[in-house]
């Protein structure tokens, strides 16, 4: 059986699910961030495979942008985590419930 679009998509979905599981399950903000990166990468994989099998380069351009944005997002997000840790001495989501009134 030839490897086709659906194989790549399956891998993408599973990777995405793994990332999602990490986001919901893990309590450490840093790990949650890594899981987010996993999800983004899953999306990238799906886009690249679509691009390949549709003979269109636009998908890859989009992936390029996603990587850029993800890099910026990681930088800002990590800076936020550091700032938060300075204030609360914790990088744990359970300790960050100040959104609840």
């Amino acid at each position: 059986m030839n490897v086709g679009l659906e194989h790549y998509l399956t891998v993408s979905f599973l990777l995405f699910a793994l990332g999602l599981l990490g986001v919901i399950m893990r309590r450490n903000l840093l790990v949650i961030y890594m899981s987010l990166e996993l999800m983004l990468n899953a999306a990238n994989l799906a886009l690249v495979s679509f691009s390949r099998f549709n003979n269109k380069l636009d998908g890859q351009v989009l992936v390029f942008f996603i990587i850029t944005v993800a890099a910026a997002e990681v930088a800002v997000g990590l800076a936020l985590i550091v700032a938060l840790y300075r204030k609360r001495q914790s990088a744990h989501v359970e300790d960050l419930t100040s959104m609840k009134l």
């Binding site: 599973l14 990777l15 990332g19 599981l21 990490g22 790990v31």
Partner: peptide, 11 residues
């Protein structure tokens, strides 16, 4: 490899 390492990242 991707999925296995992904699992190890998360859990």
């Amino acid at each position: 490899l991707t999925l296995l390492c992904g699992v190890l990242v998360v859990a």
